[in-house]
Write a protein that binds this DNA or RNA. Structure first.
Length: 557
DNA sequence: GAGTTTGAAACT
DNA sequence: CAGTTTCAAACTC
């Protein structure tokens, strides 16, 4: 973990020997991360990394502190979803009050230092190994606590900010802050700088002179020359950065449009409005990898220095993880050809990404595809090749779409998070975050979200007459390895070619996740290396046992 | 393909 | 927050 100015720069390295997963595309590198508030003084940073050796990533809005404050981190347990396998969370606490900001803005590491092997288990390098002279090191303890997702209200954001930088309290008391939020919504004179080094990730800086962006303000940045617009909602639980197609005619009262101008140098910057000295939320766009579906522009960190009152780090998680459900998205939609992440590579996404062939078409007739009834919408997709009627989930109705997203997020900040989260330690499959509520299906039909996700019901579920549990005879006879299911047929087909083909990427991912979880557990418990190795090996043995049983079972049937 | 069933989402 | 309605997918015929 490194420290640069206000930004904490993490360096992650990969335990290559644990990297069991095959790479979808080993030639590309990327780091995709998102962040969200975690509670008053707690934030989390989701890091999603594809390939490479290590990565640096900064956490805007957190100031340095000499000895480091409190730090903890964890990696997610392996879950059943693709996203979970790729994602590592790091949780940290902002440092104490006396920390002083030293840099005017946050900056990410260059792309070259930014990469991690795809799907690899991660660990944090010993900070002392950091060799960047511009960065001071910061040590930390890491725990393996599971992720808890929540969002901050603006007032909470203020409090959190104030705790980080008490000086900001005078100028930006809660009432003042909230008032400014409202005012700023009406003030278009915000300035946005979007700069990008030649090879580095895009960093977006928002600056302004007189007003802070409102909680519900939306800034639309015309990325001239990049052919895209960026829309940002601030401070609301559902902050988002989203792109609009070039020349998008859409306009709404709460939406401000800006024209941009290009600066010189290799850094492409776009600024709008007045020049500014004060600082507002920065939005950093880390490199994006191929095969990561990424990714809607909604996964960007919004944060700002304490003095701005914008220290929120939200991840509008919508759309983040779900995109991983469609790894087959053409790379070209996710990444520029040379593998470098650019703003355009990100911002281009939302408009065209969803011309995906893999997405299941919806058939909505009444929801305009702007409610969670619509799977496309719920998955963060725009409708494409669907059979829907009166669809507004497309680029032609971006304004409505954003509003709908915001409504959903206002109603439930977790609305777009994956329904299937991580399972308990050692579980290969995940569990339904909310649990199902089935009453008549016995949770053995696809009506049941657990069954549909090929996971068993858990204590979270409130289902009646559930038969989707470990020892259920019905489940054993018909569940996912039923000869009638596509799942089985595919496995059988693959198996016919080679028994070991049962070891699919998902299986490998799940296995790696289990091993990683064990490693974390060992680390958390302070076990010796030898003990940790033993735990991991035992876990590996269990995984292998399950795999072998699965192969044997399918072979003998 | 039309009609029915189902349970999540939305609404009251 | 519980009950009801709406909705679209899953399912059946």
């Amino acid at each position: 973990m490194l420290l640069s100015g206000r930004s904490l720069v993490f360096r992650m390295s990969c335990l290559k020997e644990q990297n069991q997963r095959s790479l979808d595309n080993g030639s590309e590198t990327s780091a995709v991360y998102s962040s969200e508030n975690y509670g008053r003084h707690l934030r989390t940073l989701d890091v999603n990394i594809d390939s490479g050796d290590h990565t640096d990533f900064s956490v805007p809005g957190v100031m340095p502190h000499g000895s480091g404050g409190e730090w903890s981190g964890y990696s997610r347990e392996a879950g059943s979803s693709r996203m979970d396998h790729h994602c590592t969370n790091y949780r940290f606490y902002p440092p104490p009050h006396d920390a002083e900001p030293s840099l005017p803005q946050y900056q990410f590491a260059t792309h070259g230092d930014y990469v991690l092997p795809q799907s690899s288990p991660f660990h944090l390098m010993n900070p002392s190994l950091a060799n960047n002279s511009n960065l001071s090191s910061l040590g930390g303890q890491w725990s393996s606590e599971g992720p808890v997702h929540s969002n901050m209200l603006s007032g909470e954001i203020y409090d959190a900010v104030a705790s980080i930088c008490p000086d900001s309290k005078d100028d930006h008391g809660p009432e003042s802050y909230r008032k400014q939020e409202t005012m700023a919504e009406l003030m278009p004179q915000n300035q946005m700088d979007i700069s990008q080094s030649a090879n580095g990730p895009l960093t977006v800086y928002l600056q302004h002179l007189d007003h802070q962006l409102g909680e519900n303000a939306t800034v639309v940045c015309n990325m001239s020359g990049r052919g895209q617009m960026v829309v940002m909602n601030h401070c609301s639980p559902g902050q988002m950065l989203h792109s609009l197609p070039p020349g998008h005619p859409d306009s709404s009262p709460e939406t401000h449009y800006y024209t941009t101008s290009s600066k010189e140098n290799s850094e492409q910057s776009y600024s709008m409005g007045k020049a500014s000295q004060s600082y507002l939320p920065s939005i950093s766009l880390p490199p994006i990898g191929p095969n990561h579906g990424l990714l809607s522009p909604n996964h960007l960190v919004f944060s700002g220095p304490p003095s701005s009152g914008y220290s929120y780090n939200h991840i509008p998680a919508p759309y983040f993880s779900q995109y991983h459900q469609y790894p087959e998205y053409p790379d070209s939609l996710c990444m520029v050809p040379d593998g470098q992440s650019t703003a355009s590579s990100v911002l281009r996404l939302s408009g065209s990404l969803w011309d995906s062939k893999s997405k299941k078409p919806c058939n909505c007739t009444k929801s305009q595809c702007l409610k969670l009834y619509c799977d496309c919408f719920a998955n963060g997709d725009v409708c494409s090749n669907c059979n829907c009627i009166n669809c507004c989930n497309n680029n032609e109705h971006e304004s409505e779409r954003y509003k709908a997203i915001k409504i959903c997020l206002d109603r439930n900040p977790e609305a777009f998070r994956p329904k299937i989260g991580n399972g308990k330690l050692g579980e290969i499959k995940g569990r339904h975050n909310k649990g199902c509520n089935c009453k008549r299906s016995g949770c053995l039909k696809n009506y049941c979200e657990c069954y549909e996700a090929k996971i068993m019901c858990s204590s979270t579920c409130k289902c009646v007459g559930c038969r989707n549990y470990e020892d259920s005879p019905e489940r054993k006879t018909m569940v996912w390895d039923s000869p009638d299911t596509t799942f089985y047929k595919k496995a059988k087909c693959d198996k016919d070619k080679c028994p070991l083909s049962c070891i699919t990427l998902d299986v490998v991912e799940a296995t790696c996740g289990c091993l990683l979880a064990q490693a974390e557990e060992a680390e958390k418990e302070g076990y010796t290396l030898c003990q940790a190795e033993k735990m991991i090996l035992e876990e590996f043995g269990q995984c292998l046992t399950q795999i072998v049983r699965s192969i044997f079972k399918s072979t003998s049937s």
